[in-house]
Structures are given as C-alpha cells and as structure tokens.
C-alpha cells in the first residue's frame, strides 16, 4: 500500500474515533448532565441582565463599561429590543433591570404585580423628541401641537399633502398655514418608547376630546431603526418625521423644526431648552430595578448605586442625552437610597 494512502487511512480512523466519542458524549449529554461547568447557578454570582428601550440602552451600556472598569467581576448583559418588549421580560422576572423611554403602563404594572415583581422607578436623564423635515425644505419652520395632531393623528389617515391637515389644525386653534406639499411621514414603530411619548404628548389629548382613537394614523412609515427613519426623511423633499433628540441633533440632511405647544410660541430644540422643560416635546428616560433581585444580588445593588452616581453625572451626557438638573438628580438618588 502506498505510504500517503496509509497516513490518510490513519487520519480517517482517528476521525472516526472522534466521531464515536462525540456521539457517545452527545448521547450522555442529553441524559441530564449539563456538559459544561457554569457559574450562573448561584443567586449571588453577580450577574445582571438588562433589557428594554433601545434609546436608553447606550446609557446602560456606558454605565456598564465604567462600572466594570472598577468592578470587573459583575457580569452584565445589556439588550435593546424596545421599551414594551423589555417590560414583558421584566415583569416575568427574566430581567433585573428594564430600560424605558416612558413610564411603566398600568397594564404592565399589573403584570408585574401579578408575578410578584416589585420594582423601583428611577429617572436617569431626559431626551427630547426631534420633529424633522428634509434639510432642503424651507416651506416649514415651526409646527404647533395642533398642526402635529392634524398631520399625524387618526383623522389624518389618507392625507397626502401637508395642506390637507389645515382644517383640523384650525379647529384645534392652530394657524392652518401648512404648505401644499407632498406629505411623507416617517417615525418610530409601536414597540418603541419614542412612539408612545409622541402619542402621549401630541395625539392622545386632542384625540380623546374629538372622540378619536388615541393613536397615530396607521398610514405612515414606522421603523424600529432610527437610521431608517432618517433615511426616509432625507429621501423625500417635504417629509415629516420624529426621532429622539439625541439621534436627530447629530443627523445630516435633516432640519429640526421648532415646536409650539400652543400659545407659548415656537421653541427650538436644544439641550438647554430640553433640560429646562421649555421645549415641549421632551421625555424622561428611566431604568426600572427589580427590588427583590437588588436585595439578593450585591452586584446589582452596586451597579445601580454606580448608575445613580457616575451614571447620572457622566454616562448620560457622554452618549448624547440631556442630564437631569441637580435638584432632580438629588430626588432620584433619594428614591434609590430610601427604597424599602
């Protein structure tokens, strides 16, 4: 027999040996032994699982990075499927912390209570909603809440031009001076806290008064990916859209519109007007902490302690959101230290 052929044969026999072993191993493995040693079994191993809002995700990741620099043994995983999706996981006890770009809903709180999940609500920062159009669109500079409701509310279904919305806008006390230009709307999808905040601030109240459903018109282009929204706005000359301010302020090819909450005049979105509450379209960013888990997991407690310290002072600003005022920070810190 040829020598190379013999070496091939030997290699092949070795291969089959491995096959047999791994077959046996997989057969035994399914018998119940876990296979690999794992450190996740114990409760105090210092593991933290965070999910929820993709808007708040960068803050929690930044806090994780800073925290792990001084405390590398606490193992943290941060995910960002969306505020609503996050609360489902949180209220079933799967996650330790839930990021949220809106306050928890009654239905979600009930779900938590039903599963015996107690939590602490902590505001960590502020984000404004940026209302935008294409950078080349000089027909619009400022929109009022009345305009926004008329353009995006349930009654706007089917509107293809900005001017279509003038009638409803005037009925709500708006100026009704929207231009006759094609209307392409881009915004976040419904799993998103940004969507909820917009509905809450702009749509819900007038919709209720007018006997309409408290949600946006369905015929706009929703997206969970802020980039897709920006792409949509830059791709259409007289588009309208909204995303979080942190995202909008850094974007190219779009123009941020001033917003008038009704009577108080047009306010431009800047970090200052958002922190002071002057700019009407802003929202709080929260983390929700499972209190029982914080009590039993020293790593989690230390992480949230750190969040309340460098998180509020450093991380929020570093990833582009607006820090709380000092008074508000003190209040949040008190809420954490005085939890029962």
């Amino acid at each position: 027999m040829h020598r190379s052929q013999r070496s091939v044969r030997r290699a092949a026999q070795l291969l089959v040996l491995i096959v047999g072993l791994s077959l046996a191993a997989s057969a035994c493995g399914s018998g119940g032994s876990d296979g690999s040693p794992s450190g996740s079994a114990g409760g105090s191993s210092g593991e933290i699982f965070i999910s929820g809002s993709s808007t708040v995700e960068p803050i929690s990741v930044r806090v994780q990075e800073l925290f792990n620099d001084i405390n590398p043994d606490v193992l943290i995983a941060v995910d960002g499927p969306g505020t609503g999706d996050g609360f489902v996981l949180f209220c079933s006890g799967e996650t330790d912390v839930s990021n949220a770009s809106r306050a928890i809903r009654d239905s979600e709180a009930e779900e938590c209570a039903a599963n015996g999940v107690d939590y602490v609500e902590l505001q960590v920062g502020i984000d404004g909603l940026g209302v935008m159009t294409n950078a080349s669109n000089d027909l619009v500079e400022c929109v009022s809440f009345a305009d926004l409701y008329a353009l995006t509310g349930p009654e706007a279904t089917g509107y293809r031009s900005w001017a279509d919305a003038n009638g409803v806008s005037v009925e709500l006390g708006g100026a009704g001076e929207l231009p006759d230009a094609p209307l392409d709307i881009f915004g976040p999808g419904e799993e998103s806290g940004t969507f909820d905040t917009f509905v809450e601030l702009v749509v819900e109240h007038p919709a209720e008064e007018r006997g309409q459903a408290g949600t946006t018109r369905p015929d706009y282009n929703p997206s969970g990916d802020d980039n897709v929204i920006l792409q949509g706005i830059t791709g259409s000359d007289s588009s309208l859209g909204w995303v979080g301010f942190a995202f909008a302020s850094g974007a190219q090819g779009v123009k941020l519109l001033d917003v008038d909450s009704g009577g108080s005049g047009c306010v431009a979105a800047t970090p200052e007007t958002i922190a002071s509450g002057e700019y009407p379209l802003s929202r709080p960013l929260f983390v929700y902490v499972n209190s029982d888990k914080a009590a039993s997991n020293p790593g989690l407690e230390a992480y949230v302690d750190f969040y309340m310290d460098a998180g509020l002072d450093q991380a929020v600003g570093e990833v582009g959101y607006v820090e709380l005022t000092d008074a508000a920070k003190a209040e949040v810190r008190a809420a954490w230290t005085e939890r029962t």
Binding site: D34, G35, S36, P37, S38, G39, S40, I50, E57, P58, S60, V61, Q64, E65, N68, P72, V74, L75, I76, A77, V78, D79, G80
Partner: peptide, 18 residues
Amino acid sequence: ITGGLTRNPELWDASGLR
C-alpha cells in the same frame, strides 16, 4: 445580545457556553 456584555472569555474557555 446586541447592546453590552461584560463577559469576555478566552476562546477555549468553555464556561461561557450556557
């Protein structure tokens, strides 16, 4: 996971498999 992850084991460290 898409956001952040502390665990950063060596390639051959099988303790992170689960």
